[in-house]
Amino acid sequence: MGYVFSAIAFALLAVLPLFAGDYGTGLLVGLMGYVVLASAWALFSGPTRYVSLATVAFFGVGAYVVAVLNEVLPYPVVLFCAALTGAGMALVVGLSTLRLAGIYFVIFTFGLAELVRQLITWFEVNVTGTLGRYIFLDLTARDIYWQLLALAVLTLGAGWWIRRSRLGLALRVIGDDEVVAAHAGIPVARTKLVLFVISATIITLVGAVQAPRWVYVEPSIVFNPTVSFLTVIMALLGGANRLWGPVAGAVPLFLLFEWLSARFPDHFSILLGLMFLAVVYALPDGVLAALERIRRPSVLKETKA
């Protein structure tokens, strides 16, 4: 039954922009973008509990690859190059930090976006001599939405498959106790690295797919740190350890922030901060887990025992 419902839901989502106006389609593009970002983030950070604050580093690199290559190569090849760049970057970051304790990873990702932004800015100013770039691709908001929807199906499908595979089991053990995982013969560093690369590649693709919406791209636009923080809070609010958790967090939060940023632009960061505190103190496992606890109080006792 679940498959049928999912198929119908995605079919409905696919025809939605045909009825929504320009504003509605724009909103859907943003919403679907965050659905994929939060789901992809949770693929790695959910089971391993390694909080990555570098979403926008990959997202921005994806957008930048499109900005650089969009006039030289055909669109599918550009997307492929973006994915390859994101995967390569994730490999370098992962190899240098994932063998160490989680804290080093958090600290490194904390500044990664700023580092990439500085490097690209420096390179553009000193070597190529052009800071801003234009993207002229014949893609409507609707096309972008459909690509993001396909990416969402891919991400959720990957999440579903990983959950059932040996890889997912290994990840859960690592998240519970890394020492136990290592003693059980799980290649800890390699497992984390594989998941991190998958997650980062999807995030890079979101940036690449959304890039044509900007038309004009420069580092300060595409490396906006708010994207990273929103992604984290969306995934955590819904519940990063569940397949549908990030989606359940991304949809209401995106609409809420869209509404808030129009009305209270000065209070944005206070609200974002309060949201983080609310998740830590009131909803430690996310909304979906809290709902389940209300419906079936016995589940809680069983898992605690």
Binding site: F268, S269, I270, G273, L274, F276
Partner: peptide, 25 residues
């Protein structure tokens, strides 16, 4: 213990934004 690290990071992260927002205002 496994959650403590993540919880404190997220809590101080929230505090960061609240303090930053207050100072901006």
């Amino acid at each position: 213990a496994g959650r403590l690290e993540v919880d404190t990071i997220l809590a101080t992260f929230g505090l960061l934004f609240v303090l930053q927002g207050i100072m901006l205002i």
